[in-house]
Each structure stands twice: as structure tokens, then as C-alpha cells.
């Protein structure tokens, strides 16, 4: 359905010295640099798949989505989506796409969502007899039917995102790009948006390509995960292992007042919880005052209670594994 072969994309930009003289100089002698956003990407996505596209800012995922949506061409390689070449932007192709961006709205701020839906239906040449029942169904499912006639600016962030989803799904697209669809939403709204996307997928089976930095989005929505780093795909596989790794441990870092206390506490943690100090090496430049542990989430409360009672620390860090660390962990386990 989606086939990307050896796709590369480069951006040409220039470097300018600061100040007026720098600006003047760049008019005559511009120092061009080429940045590679994507490098020899190969990717196949079947119809009806749900995949998570992940990567740090600037990793290349937005470029990839823009190429798939026909917003920009690839510099090298071929892209085929449902038999179309996206950048040719055939109307019949574009009508089958939907893009939802958590940070950008397509609905008119001062108008009720219903007015925007009317316009979108006209743009997508949807017959009223078809889209009206669909609107009823989607708004009922998202529990926003009573808000359709209220100006969008008066709605909460969660309600606005639900309206954006309706706007994007109204023409029943075959491919849906979701860019951070739960960004900024509270936990309850995040859950209901995720559930809606799952239900919609179950019913209509569109292909969903999702980017998000919330592990929960990935866990809930994407059985397949594609990780991009510096323009290259570094992981393409099941998200199960990543989810599993994510649900297991949290990273704990304590800064002690003196090295002896830290050393004593390493022993106490070993004796009490069989937890080994996770510092790779004392000689690697880390301070002897700082100690790390990877704590199983199930034991976190008891470990924390113990720490509170047993230490006089003054600095305490608690973090979930970053996605890149999780992927590294999964790869490491796989390789060994």
C-alpha cells in the first residue's frame, strides 16, 4: 500500500555570520550547507496497519510525513502510496488522506465546528446525505454532539482535539497521519482520544501513521514502531518489547551529602531490595556523590519509602526511560 524505496531528502540552507556585516557578506558570498533529513529510507506499510513513527526533533519524521502527504518531493528514491506518486497531488489521492496535528488547527477559531465541517465536506465533495450521518456517529462517539454549534475558541483543548478528529475523519480517509494527537490533553482526554482512534480503526480499517512522544500513545495505538534517527531508520518492529521495557523500570538518581553515605546506601539497597547500583563506572566522570538505580515500577513505593527514611539526600531524580534508551535496551537484549 505504501512503498518507499531508497528515499533521501536534503535541505540546502546557508550559514550567516552575526550582525550587519554578516548579512552584507552573505549577499555576495553565501556559505551554503546541505543538511540530510532522510537517507536511503526503505519502508513498506500494508493497508490498515497502525504504525508509530518516532524520533527526536529534527530526526526526519516530519519530512517523511510531508513526502507521503505530497507536500514535498523526495530528492532520491521512489514513493508509492496506493499506486499514486504523492507529489503529483492527484485530487483522487488527496481525497483519501487526513492529517491531524496536535499543534495546528484546521477548524476556524471563531466559528462553530459545524460550520467548518460543512466547508470541509464541500472541499472533499462529500454528499450531505453521506457526511451528516457520519458526523452524527463521530460526534456521538466522542461525546461532543452538544458542542457542535459552539465557537471552537470556547471549547477546551480536549474538546477541540475531538472536533479536529471529526473534521479529519469526516470524508472517511484511507490514510491518516496523526501528529501528536494527544499533545497537551489531560490524561482522561488522552484516553478517550486513543479509544476513539482504536474504535474508528476497528470499524473502517484506515492506515494510521502516528507520531507522538507519549509512550502511552504508541503502546495503545501502534503494534508496529519505526524509529528514525538522523534521517535513518534505526528500528522497525513490534512495539510490544518497547512497551514491556517501558512498563518495567524507572530510573532513580540520588545525590548524597557525602560519598560515604552514598556508598553505604548502595549496600543498603542491595541488601534490602537486591537492587544493584546502575552507575557504569566510578571512573567515567560521574560524581561519587551521585548514585543511580533502575527500580522496578512495582516496587517503587516501597523503595521510595525506604529512601525517605534512610537518607538525608538533597537532590533526587526520578525518570522514566527515554524512548531511545528503551530501544537501546530492547536491541541490547535482542543482540545478547
Amino acid at each position: 500500500m505504501i512503498e518507499i524505496k531508497q528515499v533521501s531528502k536534503h535541505y540546502k540552507t546557508y550559514r550567516k555570520d552575526p550582525g550587519f556585516m554578516g548579512s552584507l557578506k552573505s549577499l555576495w558570498a553565501r556559505n551554503f550547507i546541505t543538511k540530510t533529513a532522510l537517507k536511503d529510507i526503505d519502508l513498506k506499510i500494508s493497508s490498515g496497519e497502525r504504525i508509530g513513527l518516532l524520533g527526536a526533533n529534527g530526526a526526519g519524521k516530519t519530512t517523511l510525513i510531508k513526502i507521503l502527504a505530497g507536500i514535498m518531493p523526495a530528492d532520491e528514491g521512489t514513493v508509492s502510496v496506493m499506486g499514486y506518486t504523492p507529489y503529483e497531488r492527484e485530487a483522487s489521492y488527496l481525497k483519501q488522506l487526513a492529517i491531524v496535528m496536535g499543534q495546528k488547527a484546521q477548524l476556524w477559531w471563531d466559528l462553530p465546528a459545524l460550520d467548518s465541517f460543512e466547508l470541509l465536506a464541500a472541499i472533499y465533495e462529500q454528499d450531505r446525505s453521506l457526511w451528516m450521518p457520519r458526523l452524527d456517529e463521530l460526534s456521538q462517539k466522542l461525546n461532543v454532539a452538544h458542542l457542535l454549534k459552539i465557537p471552537v475558541r470556547k471549547l477546551s483543548l480536549g474538546e477541540r482535539m475531538k472536533m479536529e478528529l471529526i473534521g479529519a475523519f469526516l470524508h472517511q480517509p484511507a490514510i491518516i497521519f496523526l501528529d501528536e494527537p494527544t499533545l497537551g490533553l489531560d490524561l482522561q482526554a488522552q484516553k478517550s482520544v486513543r479509544q476513539f482512534i482504536l474504535d474508528y480503526h476497528e470499524q473502517y480499517r484506515p492506515t494510521i501513521i502516528l507520531t507522538s512522544h507519549y509512550m502511552k500513545d504508541i503502546e495503545a495505538l501502534c503494534p508496529r514502531l519505526v524509529m528514525i534517527e538522523q534521517g535513518k531508520i534505526i528500528y522497525d518492529g513490534s512495539s510490544d518489547k518497547i512497551s514491556e521495557a517501558n512498563s518495567q523500570e524507572k530510573k532513580l538518581q540520588i545525590t548524597f551529602k557525602n560519598p560515604e553515605e552514598g556508598q553505604d546506601f548502595v549496600i543498603k539497597m542491595r541488601n534490602q531490595f537486591s537492587l544493584e547500583n546502575a552507575d557504569k563506572s566510578e571512573s567515567s566522570g560521574s560524581s561519587p556523590l551521585v548514585k543511580h538505580w533502575n527500580v522496578p515500577k512495582k516496587r517503587l513505593t516501597e523503595v521510595m519509602t525506604f529512601i525517605m527514611q534512610e537518607t538525608s539526600m538533597e537532590d533526587f531524580n526520578l525518570s522514566d526511560m527515554e524512548l531511545s534508551e528503551l530501544i537501546e535496551q530492547v536491541w541490547f537484549t535482542k543482540k545478547n
Binding site: 507519549y214 533526587f316 526520578l318
Partner: peptide, 20 residues
Amino acid sequence: LEKNLTINPELHIRHRSLKV
């Protein structure tokens, strides 16, 4: 605070506490 950090497993956190 530390208790509250442990009872929200659904959140992806990166938190630092300074007792000072």
C-alpha cells in the same frame, strides 16, 4: 511529592527534586 510521583505509573516523567 515523592509518593505522588510513584502513584502515577501512566505518566512519562523526568523529575528532579531539590530539598534545599
